[in-house]
Computed example of a mutant assay.
Amino acid sequence: LVDAEKCTAHLKSVPGISSISVGNSIEPDFDKIASLGIDLIQEKLESLGQLKFCVRTRRSNKSFPITSKEFDFEVGARIMEALSSKGLSVDINRADFILEVEIGPQETIVFDNRVSGLCGLPVGSSGQVLSLLSGGIDSPVSTFKLMTRGCRVHSVFFDNRTFLGRGGYDKVVRLAQVLNRYQGGGKLFVVPFEDIQVAIRDNCHDINRVVLYRRMMYRIAQALAQLNNCHGLVTGESVGQVASQTLKNLAAVSCVTPMSVFRPLI
């Protein structure tokens, strides 16, 4: 059980999984499944005093001679016969306890503990992209959203510690490590950006600085993406999130690269 709980905790962090259940393998026999159901329900029933339940059966083995509804009825009737006097009732739509039965070609699994997963698509099934990762909240959220849509997301951080110190770099390294828990194999590229930033600061109008910084970042990100077989860029930009993220400014930044730019927060 401890190993099962550990596996469940890990699987909850894997994109592409709708739900996780720890089940019991058992013969597709009404009495045996009902007996297991009674054992599972009885403990909850004793602590709550009353309980609404239902049985839900799915048959991936279509050659099984009994329909899912018939199986639900036969198992449910046996459980009700044993526990109705103790406060158990049936409610198909608003059950507190759902006994689920999966009848497959090799074995039948019974479980009651369906845990929601991240859903989405398996990482890597949609290809690779490169995320412009910063120390804020927007770019990590955008990165995570692309992971759950089947992308393996690598990241690039433009390091300007001359202006901001080492704190930004350390924070991005920690963020990349956290994000990699959901995919594994994601790379973090760190690009020294201070020389470019100084050149723009010293030779361009103040009003254009931020847009010019972003244009250079996009150019560098595109080159990195092409070298690493990535088919798009990911950013945490959102219209109006900050003063520089207007529609015109976003267009001025995007036009420097022919690559697709994914902005999940817009």
Rank of each mutant, 00 (worst) to 15 (best):
S131V: 00
I98S: 10
D112M: 13
F73G: 05
F73R: 15
E107M: 06
I98N: 05
E102F: 05
S89R: 01
E102D: 14
S139I: 02
L83W: 14
A95R: 10
P140L: 00
K69H: 10
G76R: 06
G87C: 03
D138R: 04
P140G: 03
K86W: 06
G136C: 04
D91K: 15
C119Q: 14
G87K: 03
S116Y: 05
S134C: 07
G127H: 01
G120N: 12
G127P: 02
L133E: 02
R78F: 10
E74A: 11
D72Y: 09
L118T: 05
V115N: 10
S84H: 12
I98E: 11
F71R: 13
I98M: 13
P140W: 00
L99Y: 07
V123W: 11
V90M: 06
S134G: 15
A95N: 05
S126H: 00
I137T: 04
N93D: 09
A95E: 09
S131K: 00
K69E: 15
N113H: 09
S89W: 01
E81T: 15
S125E: 15
D138Y: 02
L99E: 09
G135H: 00
L118N: 15
L130S: 03
N93K: 13
L88Q: 08
F111E: 07
I92L: 08
V129P: 00
F73C: 07
V129C: 01
I92T: 11
R114M: 09
G124L: 07
S116M: 13
V141N: 02
G136F: 03
E107C: 07
K86Q: 15
L121H: 09
V110M: 11
F71W: 08
I103G: 02
Q128T: 08
G135P: 00
D112A: 10
E81S: 15
S84A: 15
S125I: 08
R114V: 15
T108F: 01
V110T: 08
L130R: 04
